[in-house]
Design a protein around this nucleic acid. Structure first.
Lengths: 336, 336
DNA sequence: AAAGCGTTTGCTACCGGGTGCAAGCAGGTG
DNA sequence: CACCTGCTTGCACCCGGTAGCAAACGCTTT
């Protein structure tokens, strides 16, 4: 790794010498609200501009014990939904004077590693962005001293003292089931991607509960290996090939849009069935392509901006840090 | 912003006190290859484990003048292709002991801002990941003292001393045009998204050049407002509605898959035409859904892993830092 | 037992800023 | 003109590590 020796930045001391003041006066010129005369400030700023000086945030972080860096853990880059979330998240963080450290959680770099690393880098907070972890793992870590405050985004948190910001799943599934019931569907199926995740379980549970509330007690459960279009296609293929036309579900809700798009492809391309006439489809997340005329998928949109504003509010302390559940909105299209 | 005062991390000095040695011995225990007896090391490690100590990377960075942080600039989160690139990039960076600082370049936070910020944070390098910038802007900055080394990923660089890693556009377009010509297409069109970008211009130029080489001098040029499915659809709608069936292009190459998918939707859904029978379509980037049976888009895949390994090699210095052009591969599907 | 040598350990100085206190300085007051 | 008050400025010390030198140590050699 190349060090940056060759291109040393100018320091406050150098600016001080140039401006004929002490380095503390230079620092005061760059610290809003500190006591300094306009004259001194002007001279410092002039010298600073001439020398191209700007404060070293590393040194500042060390001294103030605050880096204004936030680690963002992500583990499922297959879900295109991550991208708009990352966009909004980085934008809002930057607007709040923070910056995101993007950490990829994978087999070589698990949550414990990542958390330790983030801690060593003194981040001000950690956002677990929809990552799949076993709560126990992190609870142990939590007990160690000095871990940075953690927040869970777009997933439930069962960890004590770790708040989450999620889309209201109960409301969402109620809206969805109401809609499907209104449209006359009566033989529902639900495809989940990662049955071990509490968020997944919750969505499925609400789905079956609301159908039960409408007198439909049987919900066909499909499961995909992971969250990808192929996995969704595989799962639906398996179901369709071992069921008879007369006895099939008339609507399939998938845990997210990627599964739904894959499933829809397979239903149409692989089996020659029509959507929504033979089987209707519902997804979750309103991914960009879901609105295209090729799919026109009915789905549910998470309140992205509100969720992200909430989590940043918690981080900067303007919002009391406890789990928040925000309402999203239903997007009805031609697939139902 | 909450400071981390309440949860102070243990320091080397504290561990030293617990282990009955000086703080430098503690540091040596954590510095591979430094001279220390097994016995001292064992005692230090024991004390460190008991106190849950790990070195403060912030302090280390300040002292060594190397943060092992790499700023990654991204400006177009609409392109789903960014996601797999970000995945591979973060994974490889982490494997090399580096970490990514993700910076969103937008109207409120432009390249100059971002570069200044990255510099203040003392990053070891900056990766401009496919961002659209005017070369002049950065050249000016470049002249300021002490800027971190910059590298351009997936886009050309005209800036002096700033190497780029790109997919070989000439090779790609040659392969694509060869393929289309083989298939018998003779009336090609090209849809670009951002005509101001040199990368875009280059692809279009190669496309028309290779057709010219095959005796086809007329290439219809479409342009979309931006890189999105809707923009692709809009662009093709405009073209189709003002052209007569007999006189139309028989194949449309789009600058990337997102445009291609939007265009395909509009061609089929909006105009009732068949792909590839009426108009064939080619994209660029092999985005996940492009392979789905609904689209089955012929496209070209950039050598993502190789590109990222190359840029990281340049950053850590194992590869000589000069612009590299790597070959990708053609993915032929049913849309041609 | 003293000298010689390599390893281990401690120390000073330093990275580039921030904090809180005390000295310096101005202006207003009696 | 001395005195008080309040703002500005300088200073010692600190944040938690790293670098390089010098002292201390253990061991062999003569």
């Amino acid at each position: 790794m190349r060090k940056r020796e060759t291109v040393r930045r100018t320091t406050a001391k150098e600016v001080a010498a140039a401006a004929g003041v002490s380095k503390w006066t230079v620092i005061r010129a760059f610290t809003p609200g500190s006591s300094i005369t306009d004259e001194s400030k002007r001279r410092v700023m002039e010298a600073a501009a001439a020398l191209n000086y700007s404060p070293n945030l590393l040194a500042r972080s060390l001294a103030t014990n605050s880096t204004r860096q936030v680690a963002v853990f992500v583990d499922d880059f297959r879900n295109p939904q991550k991208l708009p979330f990352l966009e909004t998240l980085t934008e809002r963080l930057q607007a709040a004077g923070l910056v995101a450290m993007l950490i990829n959680i994978n087999n070589h770099f698990d949550h414990v590693h990542a958390l330790l690393h983030a801690d060593q880098r003194q981040v001000d907070a950690v956002i677990l962005f929809g990552t799949a972890f076993r709560d126990e793992t992190l609870t142990d870590r939590q007990l160690g001293n000095g871990m940075p405050p953690m927040f869970v985004l777009a997933r439930d948190s069962q960890i004590d003292g770790v708040p989450a910001v999620v889309c209201d799943a109960e409301l969402a599934l109620r809206d969805i089931v109401d809609h499907l019931h209104d449209r006359g569907y009566r033989r529902p199926g639900f495809m989940s991607g990662a049955p071990a995740l509490s968020t997944a379980l919750r969505r499925r549970q609400h789905f079956t509960d609301f159908w039960a509330g409408k007198g439909v007690s049987e919900v066909e459960l499909l499961s995909a290996e992971k969250y990808s279009a192929e996995a969704g296609a595989d799962s639906v293929r398996q179901y369709l090939s071992q069921s008879t036309p007369g006895n099939r579900i008339d609507v399939l809700m998938c845990e997210n849009d990627i599964l739904a798009l894959g499933a829809m492809d397979e239903i149409r391309g692989g089996f020659g069935l029509r959507v929504p006439d033979d089987i209707a489809i519902v997804g979750f997340d309103n991914y960009e392509l879901s609105g295209s005329s090729a799919y026109s998928l009915t789905t549910y949109e998470q309140p992205r901006h509100e969720m992200i504003d909430a989590i940043i509010g918690m981080i900067v302390g303007s919002i009391k840090a406890e789990t928040m559940t925000l309402p999203g909105k239903m997007i009805v299209r031609k697939s139902t």
